[in-house]
Lab assay of single mutants.
Amino acid sequence: MAAGGDHGSPDSYRSPLASRYASPEMCFVFSDRYKFRTWRQLWLWLAEAEQTLGLPITDEQIQEMKSNLENIDFKMAAEEEKRLRHDVMAHVHTFGHCCPKAAGIIHLGATSCYVGDNTDLIILRNALDLLLPKLARVISRLADFAKERASLPTLGFTHFQPAQLTTVGKRCCLWIQDLCMDLQNLKRVRDDLRFRGVKGTTGTQASFLQLFEGDDHKVEQLDKMVTEKAGFKRAFIITGQTYTRKVDIEVLSVLASLGASVHKICTDIRLLANLKEMEEPFEKQQIGSSAMPYKRNPMRSERCCSLARHLMTLVMDPLQTASVQWFERTLDDSANRRICLAEAFLTADTILNTLQNISEGLVVYPKVIERRIRQELPFMATENIIMAMVKAGGSRQDCHEKIRVLSQQAASVVKQEGGDNDLIERIQVDAYFSPIHSQLDHLLDPSSFTGRASQQVQRFLEEEVYPLLKPYESVMKVKAELCL
């Protein structure tokens, strides 16, 4: 049975990233139509530049190519590739079939990587351009969430054990800070992308030097003109047959890092959902379990974690691919890159769409948070109580021993009897502590235990987050809708 299948058929496997999760716009960027249309555009740009620099290419040939950029006979191309065992030459023939007058000058002087690699770089750039505003929107939604809850005390956790208090907004800023680093890295790697350009079979530009009869300047002009037509500021000066596969490492490393950030955020949300302090959106008709109707599973956060793990592992592909590119190139890269580049971007696209949807509907339960604080705060307040007693004339050592005994009794009630923490009640009825009984409410005010959390939130948002989001103001209103 021949390899390949009808990918629109229910009898043929289709990647869930495309069929179930990723956005239509990201799927289109990695589609065959987008790819092969870009090949034709690159052939047109090459012909236009070659004509401008004096090669015998007519206006009629150029116009014929322009008129057929979208006229792609995919069936013919597939048949040609089956016959020739070469995808680029299959599309040269297919393009030439609908451009008979231009057929002889299509791909003039070029090698397969002229269309293959340059198209990949265009796709990487455009895919990054799709991700950047999506990530900015996630940051914006979380920034709104953090600002609104900047002063809401909550129990902090280290080692997932109760620690000092923080605020809900401050905790959210930990998430935002990681995503801001990801946004900066995505922008950097996007701006650092260079075009492969017009380089020939081993990167020496020998074929173009021959076409222009040894004119170095025209060869350099050709490279520059096509690079500018493709919208790049610069091209690699040095290439082998391909652009260095280190570029793929750079791009997928940034995406993998984004995956790590999203995994951490969504894990926190899942843990908070278990504590009943916070939940992701839950639709009115949504079913959490087929057997347990009360369940409210954090399905979206779980999906993000599941896909983020996949995204983090994909960076190993370009690392290994770059390491086995012998001399000017081997074909070890080809099949692998067809999979890992598309999957990385479709996965990143999915987790950003999902995280935006989550961040637009996060639900906080202040009463649950308050109750958990009441359970733990008495123990945390013991040092403040000791200091207040010393100020009232008591002995630190005597007070410490009193607190120690009462704390152990209260802990026994919590752990052995399943009761509430009654340390404060014990202190309130103990005559030894009568000098500070009137101060206990103040000493137990949760806001006095959150330090500068709310001020940190305000400063972080104003100095770091809002300036970073400013270039994306025009796209901030787009909502994230999930079908599944």
Rank of each mutant, 00 (worst) to 15 (best):
L130W: 02
A127Y: 03
C399S: 12
L179I: 12
I403P: 04
F460V: 06
R396W: 02
Y466A: 15
R404A: 08
R396V: 03
S261P: 03
W43C: 02
D192Y: 09
D248Q: 00
M26H: 01
I176N: 05
L423Y: 08
A22H: 09
G203F: 01
F345R: 04
F345V: 10
D317M: 07
L174D: 10
A410I: 05
E64N: 13
F208R: 02
A136T: 15
E302W: 05
D349E: 10
Q375N: 05
H437V: 09
R337T: 00
A49P: 00
E370A: 11
F145M: 00
F95W: 14
T111S: 10
F433L: 07
M76K: 15
Y294W: 02
P56A: 13
E79F: 11
A3N: 15
N336K: 05
I385M: 10
M76A: 10
Q161S: 02
L132D: 12
L355A: 10
I72D: 09
K170S: 01
S31T: 12
Y432E: 09
R426S: 09
S140T: 15
I265K: 07
F236M: 09
G231Q: 09
A18S: 15
Y432C: 08
A163M: 08
R300G: 04
A90Q: 01
C173T: 08
Q356S: 13
Q356R: 04
G418Q: 05
M181D: 11
G169D: 03
Q61D: 10
E280K: 03
S306Q: 01
H217T: 13
S261D: 05
G240D: 01
S12A: 12
D6I: 07
I122D: 00
D182A: 01
F232H: 00
A431Y: 05
T244C: 13
F195Y: 12
L130N: 15
A480L: 15
L55A: 02
D332K: 00
Q320E: 06
K101T: 14
Q409W: 07
H91T: 00
S140R: 14
D73G: 07
V457I: 15
C399M: 04
I238Q: 05
Q161K: 00
K402W: 00
A344D: 03
F433S: 04
I386Q: 03
K218F: 11
C99W: 00
F208M: 10
Q325C: 15
Q177N: 14
W39C: 07
E70W: 10
S454A: 12
R37M: 14
T119H: 03
E302Y: 00
N336Y: 02
M299F: 05
Y432K: 06
M89D: 03
D248V: 02
K479S: 12
Q41E: 12
A381S: 07
A150C: 12
C98F: 11
